[in-house]
């Protein structure tokens, strides 16, 4: 019988713990597919964050390291410097990457550290039960912004891709979403490119994936996907923010 669909080899058999309707599962799969297609599983080391995807180390079949909250880019820097021939990626959420770990993120980017960063932006702290994130939208109700994010007192969301693309360092920065098939296909392409760049020694490649959190957003999975389309993407426009190689080719 012909196999028409199977789990990527780069994922283990451990059942994912994510909530129904959470898009972490899709993103895990896209990362694993990219690893499979590039044939790099045996030399890949992943770095898991603190947050909902903390146990990503159980799900990816490659060697894995669990980092302290926000420190994944620094840990990945150590790994890559010690193992320059290996492929190193981090998988981080918005609180991890854009709040507590912002310094590590910016500096790994500006060093053009030859690593791949998968940044899952769902505008909330999921694991701790739905607190305001650096990427929570203006007016967004969370446990710690119960009257809605008030930009006058807590400031504005951070557009990470736009911000990092102002640096000279990074090689590739793209924002994608996984709320429909078309966007998932584009996300797959971006993630694979972010790994391919590392294989080719090009440098820091970050893919920001606009994601969902139906549980903490208080929405059904279906409504959450609609919220991504209606609220998230307008604030976080999809697209390539930086692609140094492409720019060079144009010139």
């Amino acid at each position: 019988m012909a196999v028409v669909f199977q789990k990527p080899k780069a994922l283990t058999d451990a059942p994912l713990h994510y909530c129904p309707g959470c898009t972490h599962g899709i993103i895990h799969r896209l990362v694993a597919e990219a690893i499979d297609e590039l044939g790099i599983e045996g030399k890949t080391v992943g770095v898991a964050p603190v947050g909902c995807s903390v146990m990503a180390y159980d799900y990816f079949a490659c060697d894995m390291v669990e980092a302290a909250h926000g420190r994944a880019p620094a840990v990945a820097t150590g790994l890559k410097r010690a193992l320059p021939e290996n492929i190193i990626f981090t998988y981080q959420g918005d609180g991890d990457l854009a709040s507590i770990g912002m310094a590590e993120t910016v500096h790994a980017a500006t060093r053009n550290e030859n690593i791949t960063v998968i940044f899952v932006n769902n505008a909330i702290y999921g694991m701790t039960g739905g607190q305001m994130a650096p990427t929570s939208l203006p007016g967004q109700v969370t446990q710690t912004s119960p009257y809605g994010r008030d930009t006058a007192t807590v400031g504005f969301p951070i557009r990470v891709s736009e911000m990092l693309s102002t640096l000279d360092g990074p090689e590739f920065i793209q924002r994608v979403a996984v709320n429909n098939v078309k966007n998932i296909n584009a996300a797959k392409k971006a993630i694979k490119k972010a790994f391919q760049n590392q294989v080719e020694g090009k440098g820091f490649s970050l893919v920001e994936v606009v994601s969902t959190c139906p549980t903490n957003w208080g929405l059904t999975p279906q409504k959450a996907l609609e919220w991504v389309e209606e609220k998230m993407i307008p604030y976080y426009p999809l697209g390539v923010y930086k692609d140094r190689s492409a720019n060079k080719e144009e010139k």
């Binding site: 080391v45 770095v47 390291v65 980092a67 302290a68 420190r71 620094a74 840990v75 990945a76 820097t77 150590g78 790994l79 890559k80 410097r81 010690a82 193992l83 310094a103 590590e104 500096h107």
Partner: peptide
């Protein structure tokens, strides 16, 4: 960041 880079290398 420095100690976490150490953590990364130590893991290898």
């Amino acid at each position: 960041a420095a100690i976490n880079m150490v953590y990364g290398v130590a893991g290898t």
